[in-house]
Nucleic acid binder design. Structure first.
Lengths: 146, 146
DNA sequence: AAAGTATAAGGTAAGTTTGAAATAAACGTT
DNA sequence: AACGTTTATTTCAAACTTACCTTATACTTT
């Protein structure tokens, strides 16, 4: 097989694997009453604490108006709140409410366990290899984004 | 780092890499006047020939109602046509029109070249390793989908 | 300090995706 | 052959995402 064909196959594999993985992860997230985007935002805030709204969008690769929408939904659910920045009045932070914090402490371990299942078959070294290779491809990809 | 944490990191890496890769690929597709879903369907038909509509949905992991929508768009563009199955009258095939065939023959090589760039940094063996690992994870994932 | 430029958040409209329900046809069992 | 079940496609409404635009604020240069 030519290198070119290999690349195409690799692309197909990466996209399909990602799609299947996303589906599993999504189903898990939905079982907690959150859609994938909402969960991703919650997880980000859970790990990083209070963050500027625009920063969240950048990190999880979502358009600015989409973030507004998601944060709106999460506020309605009482899981996230907006807090004004006193230094830069253009900025609004999003942070978990106590209820949101509570919820993440509850579901995060379950979520981690679901993910653990996905990678159970791989040896430690394979898992690390996979991460390294994907990191490289991902890095290359970000460089190619216009 | 615990194995559990490694799994989470691996998930993050796979999803981020996929997201970046998707973005690059998507930009390429859009440059041909097709969105990602449309291109994926076109590519599938280009490689496999005439296919039942429902089969396409299964293969590219799209809800049946979404396929209907995409095929509608592609028909409007004159790239795809619906053909009734004479054996099973529930089934409708989708296939490339001559124009669609023409278009794919034109853009497919360019598309392949874009993708080639993504994986340029990886050695042949790394590329194969990546595919093998992702295949395993992807397979595991499909088993976990409810 | 004024003027121009850059950045943050949100509004709006259009396009995409989904789930649920509807319709039609085929299949399986009695 | 009739009856219930499954499968394929479509329709519809609702949810989500994006691109483009607006407003407000901060930064930079003169």
């Amino acid at each position: 097989m030519t290198r070119n064909e290999d690349s195409l196959k690799a692309l197909t594999t990466i996209l399909r694997a990602a799609s299947s993985v996303e589906r599993v992860v999504k189903e898990d997230m939905v079982s907690y009453g959150l859609n994938a985007t909402e969960f991703t935002v919650m997880e980000y805030l859970y790990n990083r604490g209070k963050q500027p709204i625009q920063m969240i969008g950048k990190k999880i690769l979502l358009a600015s108006s989409s973030i507004t929408y998601v944060i709106d939904r999460l506020e309605e659910k009482g899981l996230v709140q907006r807090v004004a920045d006193v230094k830069d009045r253009r900025v609004t932070f999003a942070e978990l409410t106590d209820e949101g914090q509570q919820k993440m402490m509850e579901i995060f371990p379950q979520h981690a366990e679901t993910i653990e299942k996905l990678f159970k078959e791989l040896s430690d070294s394979d898992l690390n290899k996979l991460r390294a290779l994907l990191k490289e491809v991902g890095y290359k990809a970000t460089k190619l984004i216009k």
